[in-house]
Amino acid sequence: MKDDNDRNRRELKLWLRMLLTTRAAEAELREFLRVSHGTTLPRFDVMAALWRRGEAISMSDLSRMLLVSNGNATAVVDRLEKDGLVKRSPSETDRRTVFVSLTEAGTTRFMTLARDHSDEVSRIFADLPDEDLDTMSAILKRMGERRNAAK
């Protein structure tokens, strides 16, 4: 029983470390995007999802990709559309469906943001040797695979 309690404490400690580290890194990225680019992490995330897809996607698909509610995605897309970075287009087959995609200006803006975001992530991880990055990536990948296999 003692071994189980010790393992449980170690697991909880690891969980808290992962959570605190992730939150700290996310806070640094949020501040970097706000100060250096006058934008937000949710706006960056929407643009990144649209850029990765490379074509117009439905607002529902966008919400699922980002793991946010339709309302949250809509609010971010509204602001991006107002700034001319994304455009909406109605579905030709379903009047309830709206597609969203990056505009040319949005693609240009995203490329700058993506480059600088990548540089900032590199700065955050700069103190870790390559072996640690590889080990941490492998561990997290195994955890994700195990979680996905259980579904």
Rank of each mutant, 00 (worst) to 15 (best):
T135Y: 10
V76D: 01
A25D: 13
S36A: 15
M47V: 01
H37E: 07
A105V: 01
E145D: 15
K82A: 07
K151C: 07
L19Q: 10
E81Y: 02
D78A: 05
R109A: 14
V35Q: 11
G71P: 08
A114N: 09
F110A: 08
M47G: 04
K87Q: 11
E31D: 11
S101N: 09
N72K: 13
L20R: 12
F32R: 03
E28T: 07
R7S: 10
R23A: 10
L80K: 03
T74D: 12
K87C: 08
T93K: 14
R30H: 06
W51F: 15
L102K: 01
N148L: 15
R88T: 05
G144E: 06
T93Q: 11
A138S: 15
L16M: 12
W15A: 15
T97N: 07
T21H: 09
T40R: 00
L62S: 04
E120H: 10
S101D: 11
L33M: 01
M47P: 01
T39G: 00
A25H: 05
G106L: 03
E104H: 08
S122L: 11
A126G: 02
E120R: 15
R123P: 05
V68W: 07
E81M: 06
D119C: 06
S137M: 10
K151E: 13
T93E: 12
R95D: 12
L12A: 05
I57A: 09
L20Y: 08
S63K: 02
V68D: 02
A25F: 01
S69G: 13
A75K: 14
V46Q: 00
T93S: 14
V76T: 14
T22Y: 11
G71F: 06
R9P: 10
M18E: 10
D130M: 10
K141T: 12
T97A: 15
K151Q: 13
T107K: 15
E145L: 09
K13N: 09
S60A: 15
A56I: 04
R115T: 07
A114V: 00
D3H: 07
R7P: 04
G144S: 04
A138M: 07
E26V: 12
D119E: 14
A48P: 02
R10L: 15
F125C: 08
F99L: 09
R147Y: 13
M18Q: 09
D94K: 05
M136L: 13
I57L: 08
E131P: 01
D119A: 12
L128C: 04
V121T: 04
M47K: 05
V68E: 02
N8P: 02
G106Q: 06
M111W: 00
S122H: 08
L20T: 08
S101M: 10
N5E: 14
D78H: 11
T93F: 12
T112W: 00
H37N: 06
D134M: 12
S60M: 10
T103A: 04
R147Q: 08
F110Y: 13
V98N: 02
A73Q: 01
V100N: 00
E26S: 14
H37G: 02
L67P: 00
F99Y: 15
I139L: 13
A138C: 04
L41T: 03
K141R: 14
L50G: 00
L140I: 12
